[in-house]
């Protein structure tokens, strides 16, 4: 589950100065013709760098995103939810695996990416630094965060880098099920007992501000990404994704009798949604490590890496000589 938007370094004027102009022109022409770039094809260093950055952050978002919902697997109410929650979170970890493989085709190993994650050098989707306080929070994540991820990932699946696009096609197919699962769970809560309705509204209130930041800062604050747009690395602007999300899901939220905690939220006559500008100062603070769960999420990941290191070492080790087995013994 990944919303992107906050991930690109600003490109500088002289980034391409060292690239071969003939190869660069051919590369750009291929992308303009709608061709996919494959791992062994020539590509500018900036393209490689930004793609590693994007795919790696997407992969991290999947495995860190598994944590807030993962804590509810053991507490999911009833067989149906327990099994679905397990399957859903397992899918997310599987997406991580797919995406690390896609990023590895660009020359950075999974181990190196995970090391950068643990060291805080590499980021992940900011929403996962917020806690899933109740079961209802987990339902809201499954529905609306996955919905947001689909908006972003469907756009990125039309991008230019072959391995990433193919991974996204598979991921989007699974996310579509998550969305149905999340929606079904929210419907049960929103149409259930007064206690359930109260739980789901409270969860929506908690999650709405992070959801609004999911696609990253507004376009007027974003760094210049013209080159990345031309190279089909960045496929839609943050505000375009946010508008699409609001357009698709706010009516569905209202349909359930839930209230979106933003008095300013409405759709203008020209079809554009207006909303209270998210708190981008808090957003920056949280990205930089000061959110409610940053430390906990990374600590969990670090523990998993450290405790599992012996398994990875053992699997890489040359096999010990097999024990001698006595004939006919």
């Amino acid at each position: 589950m990944y919303g992107g938007g906050n991930i690109f370094e600003a490109t500088k004027f002289d980034d391409l100065a060292t690239e071969d102009p003939v190869k660069l022109a051919e590369f750009e022409a291929r992308i303009a013709r709608g061709e996919k770039i494959e791992p062994n094809d020539w590509m500018p260093e900036l393209y490689r760098k930004q793609l590693i950055r994007m795919i790696e952050q997407h992969a991290h978002s999947e495995i860190i995103g598994a944590l807030p919902e993962g804590t509810w697997i053991t507490r999911a109410p009833g067989f149906r939810r327990k099994m679905a929650q397990m399957a859903k979170v397992q899918d997310e970890v599987g997406h991580g695996q797919l995406l690390y493989s896609a990023a590895e085709t660009l020359g950075k190993s999974r181990e190196a990416m995970l090391t950068d994650l643990i060291n805080g050098k590499s980021k992940y989707s900011n929403v996962f630094n917020y806690p899933a306080v109740t079961w209802a929070d987990s339902n809201i994540i499954s529905w609306l965060i996955d919905a947001g991820a689909i908006v972003n990932q469907m756009a990125n699946a039309k991008g230019s880098y072959g391995p990433y696009c193919r991974a996204l096609d598979r991921i989007c197919a699974e996310e579509a099920f998550h969305l149905k699962y999340g929606h079904d769970a929210v419907v049960h809560m929103a149409t259930g007992s007064p206690k359930q309705r109260e739980m789901i509204q409270a969860a929506l209130n908690r999650w709405w501000p992070p959801i609004m930041t999911f696609f990253g800062p507004s376009d007027k604050m974003s760094t210049h990404t013209e080159t990345l747009v031309r190279w089909k690395v960045k496929m839609a602007t943050n505000d375009e994704c946010r508008q699409q999300f609001l357009d698709m899901y706010v009516p569905k939220i209202w349909e359930l009798g839930l209230t979106v905690p933003d008095p300013k939220l409405h759709k203008n006559a020209d079809g554009v949604w207006e909303y209270t500008e998210p708190d981008w100062v808090e957003f920056k603070e949280v990205i930089n490590g000061n959110g409610p769960c940053n430390k906990e999420r990374l600590a969990v990941r670090r523990t998993a890496e450290e405790k599992g290191a012996w398994v990875r070492r053992a699997l890489l080790a040359p096999k010990k000589e097999a024990k001698y087995i006595k004939p006919l013994a």
Binding site: G70, F79, K82, M83, Q90, Q97, K307, R312
Partner: peptide, 28 residues
């Protein structure tokens, strides 16, 4: 299922989650 998100490597994380689902299904 408690291994989901904590496995020693992603492949084992996924394997244990997958077996957890099967076991739940079997008990049901």
């Amino acid at each position: 299922s408690e291994w989901t998100g904590f496995g020693p490597m992603l492949e084992e994380d996924i394997a244990f989650s997958s077996m957890a689902q099967d076991k739940l299904g079997h008990s049901l």
